[in-house]
């Protein structure tokens, strides 16, 4: 029994397995053209070898973590009580409280994002888009780039070369929906609806709300798909052509394809940037081995309508349940699941308990200095040719949904000899 427990409570792995390979090794879970998987897209890390060749140097891990912090600050600023607006459209009692959105030139919305390739227009033009469960509006850079376009890998979408493209009028319901989907009131230019979306780091896209045919695969084609045709796009979106929004709002891909896929989607992110995962719309595989937790309702006001909230009931390290009061998570305002944030953020008390127990169970390994936002680090320079043993970490979400993390979700390799616990604490117990 003890041996069995050990097998379940520890991961044994080669330290070098935490590093991505230089060549792409596609996952066998993605089978293009399969009838059952007709609505499935291949997911690749935008800076890995499975992505299209880079026009610029990929960011360092330190830069990715700095961008991650910027994204987290942005999400938490959006969910701050001072953002609440009453149904009458008036600011609530927190109106005098100032929200400082992070303004940090050089930081992107999140450099650790994953991309998918979709077709837009007739005939379809292939575009590499960041996929993001933390936002709603899908947008791409559009010709003639009236104000500004950044450099992207794919040819910039040209509406005039698509026979199915049209602009959307200011009077349409979709134009009105932009307010909640982007957080900004839409504009109007010669009766054409104008969107503007700005991210926490001041990156933005402004352009025309448009509709055209979205092609996910030959058998998954959606006419009259609403998206942003960006004429002024600035920020560090890398070489991608834009973003595909998988949030909960009405303009998200999830909502726009609800008639076909029933607001059901799934994804798998690969264990390293040198492999691939998938994003599937609809019930594309048997869900027998999937355990579910109910979405939690948010008490954070209108700005939280995009996010997917869940409740954490507990965390275990090496099979040992951490002593964390439920009030710790409640005081933090809940938990969201986000595909665009790299490192899981926990309330200070929860992170402290996690880090302390992890250190206790990892005490045979020499420690290493902190790295960026990661403060629980180890020096594995003497273990490059032998296996290391790390405790498992599991999260239990409401409804007794216990999720064991993969080893790739526990340690993140910093360099050839150092790796860190891939978690960080929030600085404030109430945010």
């Amino acid at each position: 029994d003890e041996e069995d427990d050990d097998l379940h409570h520890f991961h044994t792995l080669h330290f070098t397995s935490l590093f991505p390979q230089s060549l792409c090794t596609p996952s066998s879970s993605f089978t293009p053209g399969s009838k059952q998987r007709s609505s499935t897209l291949q997911v690749v890390h935008r800076h890995g070898p499975c992505s299209v060749p880079h026009l610029t140097t990929p960011p360092s891990l330190a830069e990715i973590l700095a961008a991650d912090e910027s994204r987290v600050e942005s999400i938490q600023a959006k969910l701050a009580p001072s953002y609440e607006i009453t149904r009458a459209g008036k600011r609530n009692k927190y109106k005098d409280r100032k929200v400082d959105l992070p303004v940090q030139p050089g930081r992107s919305l999140g450099s650790g994002n994953y991309i998918v390739r979709v077709g837009l227009g007739t005939p379809p033009k292939t575009l590499s888009l960041i996929f993001d469960t933390g936002s709603d509006l899908t947008w791409t850079q559009c010709q003639p780039c009236a104000r500004s376009c950044y450099q992207q890998q794919d040819p910039i979408f040209n509406p005039s070369s698509s026979s199915s493209y049209s602009n959307v009028s200011c009077a349409s319901s979709q134009c009105s929906q932009l307010s909640s989907a982007t957080g900004n009131t839409p504009g109007c230019s010669t009766k054409t609806c104008v969107y503007g979306i700005q991210y926490g780091d001041q990156s933005f896209s402004v352009g025309f709300l448009s509709k055209d045919t979205l092609t996910i695969s030959k058998s998954a084609v959606f006419q009259n798909f609403f998206f942003g045709c960006g004429q002024n796009n600035q920020g560090l979106f890398g070489n991608t052509a834009g973003l595909i929004g998988l949030g909960r709002d009405q303009l998200s891909v999830v909502s726009q394809t609800a008639g076909t896929y029933g607001k059901y989607f799934s994804y798998c992110l690969p264990s390293s940037s040198s492999s691939t995962g998938h994003l599937s719309l609809g019930r594309s595989r048997a869900s027998g081995s999937v355990i579910f937790t109910p979405f939690a309702s948010s008490s954070q006001g209108a700005a939280s309508n995009s996010f997917y909230f869940v409740d954490i009931d507990g965390i275990s390290v090496g099979g040992r349940a951490l002593s964390i009061s439920q009030s710790v998570f409640q005081a933090a305002g809940g938990t969201i699941v986000d595909s665009g944030t790299v490192i899981t953020r926990l309330p200070p008390a929860a992170y402290s308990a996690l880090s302390t127990e992890f250190q206790q169970q990892m005490k045979k390994y020499p420690v290493a200095p902190a790295y960026s936002i990661l403060d629980t680090c180890y020096d594995f320079s003497n273990y490059t040719n032998t296996k290391i043993v790390i405790p498992t970490i599991s999260f239990t979400f409401r409804g007794n949904a216990k999720v064991n993390l993969d080893a790739s979700g526990i340690l993140i390799a910093i360099n050839g000899k150092q790796a860190c616990l891939a978690f960080a604490g929030n600085s404030d117990s109430s945010t």
């Binding site: 059901y264 799934s266 699941v337 899981t344 993969d406």
Partner: peptide, 30 residues
Amino acid sequence: VAIFGNTQQKTLEVVYDVAGGRLGFGAGGC
């Protein structure tokens, strides 16, 4: 707000049943 980030989601099949009001996790998704 706590955030369950993408590093921790690696290799899991993460299922969003939005209409059903639930989120699922499956081991060995890719």
